[in-house]
Amino acid sequence: MPFPPPGFFEAMAEAVETEPDRFRHLGIASLRLCVLVEHPSGPPTAYGLVLDGDDVLPLGQVEPSAFEPEVTVRGPEEVWAAMAADAAAHGAASGSQTLNALTLAGFPLAVEADDPLGRDKFFRYAQTLQELFDAAATRAAGAQNLGRPSVA
């Protein structure tokens, strides 16, 4: 299964827009996050995500050196895809499929940052990020099931 499914990161912004109380309750954040997807062949694909106050800005594919992320989460496409599938199936990531669980040991996903404060930001916004990824996974899966090219 490819990752990200169509509209995955855009669905995060839509979730914040359509469920403002849920995400406002989690509080403001300030983060430049790069999601790096390693494919079975070919170069990895980087996606930029900016958390700015109450807003979430998906930047789509980015060049990491130009995007200058505070933290990068890197891992194989199949791991990202399994995470999204689990969240879509359960409504939220379960068991060892949460972002924290997948990154804790440095594998199968790794948290990388030039600055340890950037790395710690991944933990400072742990619940926000988890709920954003959960929402994106369920919305993207719902859109795919409806046969739409992207989430509504």
């Binding site: 949460t98 400072r124 742990a126 619940q127």
Partner: peptide, 14 residues
Amino acid sequence: IFRLCMQDEARHVA
């Protein structure tokens, strides 16, 4: 519980 506590603790460490 752990994720919410983690967020707070990371602020203190920062």
